[in-house]
């Protein structure tokens, strides 16, 4: 699989949020406005890309020592550590960004997109470049998803749409997500 194909497919055809339904928790919680969604999205892109790149050599090490059954455990540890280091780093050098990220950054540790991306590259036997591309594109796809959902929610709030009472709030978000997933099915078969 060439890198462009991989990039486009991870971004659209196999969008990690809309086709794999991963990372729903922050996607629903932090999609009330576009500004926050963007912040969360950027944080996820940075963390996922970084952990993908870091976890790849670690996985090679696991393979060399025949301990791949530890992958899940080790990946989680590296993810938590990466987020921690990133937090210290941003806090020190970009205090403005830090205060606007607020709670999003530590929250990412438990975003399943991060772990899923690391586990997927194992399953799919990607090489290093593919892993990097896949991590970046998947997280970018997730960022796109949360911004789209936030945009829809913002619009709905602005025009005070007539949502049935039982669905007000998070309920209607699931339906929006469903419709968007269906729409993304339209990308099936797309390639360059």
């Amino acid at each position: 699989m060439n890198l462009t194909d991989l990039f486009v497919s991870s971004l659209l055809n196999n969008n990690i949020a809309f086709t794999f339904i991963l990372g729903m928790c922050p996607l629903i919680a932090i999609s009330t406005n576009v500004k926050n969604a963007k912040g969360m999205g950027i944080a996820v892109v940075i963390v996922v890309t970084l952990t993908g790149i870091i976890n790849y050599p670690i996985y090679l090490l696991l393979k060399a020592t025949n301990t791949t059954n530890l992958a899940l455990l080790v990946f989680i540890i590296t993810i938590a550590a990466t987020v921690q280091i990133l937090e210290i780093f941003i806090e020190k050098y970009l205090p403005k960004v830090y205060s606007s990220f607020g709670i999003f950054l530590p929250l990412i540790t438990v975003n399943c997109v991060v772990l899923a991306v690391s586990l997927f590259f194992v399953n799919r036997n990607y090489n290093f470049l593919q892993t990097a591309t896949f991590s970046f594109a998947s997280s970018l796809g997730w960022m796109m998803a949360i911004i789209i959902v936030a945009g829809v929610r913002e619009k709905m709030a602005a025009i005070q749409s007539d949502v049935p009472r039982g669905l007000v709030g998070k309920g209607i978000v699931f339906i929006i997500l469903g419709i968007l997933s269906l729409a993304f099915l339209g990308f099936t078969g797309l390639s360059f």
Binding site: L61, L62, T65, N66, T67, L73, V74, I77, T78
Partner: peptide
Amino acid sequence: NIYVPIVLIGIL
């Protein structure tokens, strides 16, 4: 596998 504890402890 002898590497299991080594890898785990090493990474931690």
